[in-house]
């Protein structure tokens, strides 16, 4: 029964939010704009081409490296618990793990992935 009650509360809250949004729209909204009014501002010029286009995300190599080291941090939390029990052995294992990642980073460095261009 608790589950149904919670769902009801969420449903009513949603209804109220939608109702409030509708009321704000009706009270303030004007949607009778003309074509020139809808054109994006480009300093007074008219856009010739559609804005939809594909471009090169230049930070993607950096983003991938960030993800790799981010995941490494995730592994370090359970490792910290094991480290208390295992001591030196756990430390060596983690150093080996980091070393493998560092090799990857050195490779990326050599490939000039960190240069912003």
């Amino acid at each position: 029964m608790v589950g149904i009650g919670a769902a009801l509360i969420v449903f009513v809250a949603l209804l109220l939010t939608v109702g409030a949004a509708q009321w704000v729209w009706a009270a303030t909204g004007e949607n009778d704009s003309t074509v020139p009014e809808r054109v994006p501002f480009a300093g007074g010029a008219e856009p010739e081409f559609h804005a939809w286009n594909r471009f090169h995300i230049r930070y993607y190599a950096m983003a991938l490296l960030f993800l790799a080291f981010d995941m490494e941090m995730v592994f370090m939390y359970p490792w910290a618990v094991v480290f208390v029990r295992q001591g030196l052995l756990a430390l060596i294992e983690m150093l080996m793990f980091i070393l493998i990642l560092v090799v990857g980073m050195v490779y990326a460095w050599r490939e000039k992935s960190f240069e912003w261009d």
Partner: peptide, 26 residues
């Protein structure tokens, strides 16, 4: 409005190029 044109970029990839006129009141 037509979609963007394609042209090689500085990495040698064929990517979209959009001519945009900016101004005179930018």
């Amino acid at each position: 409005r037509p979609l963007a044109l394609r042209a090689p970029d500085r990495d040698g990839l064929e990517l979209d190029q959009v001519p945009v006129t900016i101004g005179p009141w930018f």
